[in-house]
């Protein structure tokens, strides 16, 4: 999956001559926290809600200085920016967010700002990857950590003509000999499938067994 598949392309921007007051109003109105600053479609900086707060008069200070709101954005914007390319892999972008603890990544191609990716977009992408946004039942199967197991499991789904929406393979606690397959299937009644999985010798972690043991 590429960044261009999940980024927002209708980016809200301001110029360096806009003021903090403009940025505050824009953030409120559009419910956003990051505003790229552009000049002739080129990205020259970024203003975040934190930059704005730090530069604004304190709400608890007695002497209010409204003139601070008239400060132009070029005085407070970050210019040392991390940027991404639309054809970067989504996983690479996620790694940037994690490593540098950033909240948003402007996406630039041919020197032009073409999109923006935020933590929220990445999180939603994760939800979509897990299939949790579509009608489905969730089955977890504890399987031996060896080749060919996924094939054997999916044979059962195939037999029941069942559409698999997502498969995640993740470690099982500290046990390196096992993995958990977390599968979302487009089924309201998974009972026949669970029975068959068990008959094939798979360890289905259905609530009955899973949660009661904990």
């Amino acid at each position: 999956m590429l960044v261009q598949d999940i980024m927002k392309t209708d980016v809200i921007t301001l110029n360096s001559t806009h003021t903090i007051a403009d940025a505050v109003q824009m953030m409120k109105q559009k419910r956003i926290r990051h505003i790229p600053i552009i000049e002739n479609d080129r990205l020259i900086g970024l203003v975040t809600d934190r930059d704005v707060k730090e530069a604004s008069p304190s709400s608890i200070s007695e002497t209010s200085e409204p003139s601070l709101y008239e400060t132009t954005l070029d005085k407070i914007m970050k210019t040392d920016l991390l940027i991404g390319h639309p054809r970067d892999f989504a996983e690479e972008a996620a790694l940037l967010f994690y490593t540098y603890e950033i909240g948003c990544l402007p996406i630039v191609s041919n020197y032009q700002l073409v999109g923006i990716l935020t933590k929220t977009d990445l999180l939603y992408n994760y939800i979509e990857l897990t299939g949790a946004n579509q009608p489905s039942s969730h089955i977890q199967i504890r399987v031996p950590n060896q080749a060919g197991v996924l094939y054997e499991v999916t044979k059962v789904f195939n037999k029941h003509n069942t559409n698999v929406l997502s498969v995640l393979v993740h470690p099982y606690q500290d046990d390196e000999d096992c993995k958990i397959l977390a599968v979302r299937i487009k089924r309201m009644n998974p009972l026949a499938i669970i029975t068959d999985l068990k008959a094939e010798g798979f360890d289905v972690l259905w609530p009955g067994e899973l949660e009661m043991d904990l």
């Binding site: 579509q134 009608p135 489905s136 039942s137 969730h138 977890q140 979302r184 309201m188 259905w206 609530p207």
Partner: peptide, 9 residues
């Protein structure tokens, strides 16, 4: 909860 049960939402 949709943790296991259909439809998950």
């Amino acid at each position: 909860t949709g943790r296991y049960l259909f439809p998950g939402t």
